[in-house]
Amino acid sequence: MNNKNQALSRLKRVLLQDKVHSYEGFLRVIKGDIYTLMSCYMTVKEPIDIDFDVDEEGDCNFCIRVRASNLKSPKTMI
């Protein structure tokens, strides 16, 4: 990645951080909620990984990676 592209991605991150006030804090809150939600259905094995970026239309694209085991069957959940 050249300096221009690095500057561009840093700029996007800075602007996004300004909008959500605290980028790291924002991600921590989302990760916590996702962990709670997904733990109802499975055993979450590794820390949840979230990437997100803003596209040209200003929409956020989220990419969430979760590694899990012991998926609970619908019967168990009931």
Partner: peptide, 18 residues
């Protein structure tokens, strides 16, 4: 600097600012 890939172009900036 833009040609060398060391500075964002005006078009890149406008795109980010929308």
């Amino acid at each position: 600097l833009v040609l060398q890939g060391n500075m964002m172009s005006a078009e890149d900036i406008a795109k980010v600012l929308r």
